[in-house]
Structures are given as structure tokens and as C-alpha cells.
Amino acid sequence: MNIWKVFKAVFSAFIGVQSEKNRLEDFQANSPIPFILVGILMVLIFIFSLVYLVNFMVYLM
């Protein structure tokens, strides 16, 4: 399971759409730890990109 697949899976979770085929593939993984870590990392990325966007909007207007 390469790390990009994990990112792709977590990204699918964020937008809330995943196909059955990819799900079966994701659940072949031996351990949920990479998914959880990448999930938390993506939440942090989500937070910081939103903070950046918000500051940019305030600066813009």
C-alpha cells in the first residue's frame, strides 16, 4: 500500500465519495494506523489552508 493511495483514500473520505472497488482495495491494508495519521495530517492541512484563505480574504477586502 503506497502512501499516495492512503492520501487518496482520506481525500475521498473528506469529500464523502468513494467507489466500492477502491474501498475493497483500501480495506486490504493490514493496519489502520497510516489512515488515521494521514487523516489527522489532512485535518491539520485543512485547518491551516482555511486560516490562510481567511487571512487572504480579509487582506483582499
Binding site: V10, A13, F14, G16, E20, N22, R23, G39
Partner: peptide
């Protein structure tokens, strides 16, 4: 969309 439901639920929990 069972798969989507499971994925979305877990990310809703984090977000």
C-alpha cells in the same frame, strides 16, 4: 453508496 457513507462518516467525525 455504502463505501461513501462509511468514508464520509469517519471524516465528519474528525472535522
Amino acid at each position: 453508496g455504502y463505501a461513501s457513507m462509511v468514508y464520509a462518516t469517519s471524516s465528519i467525525a474528525l472535522l
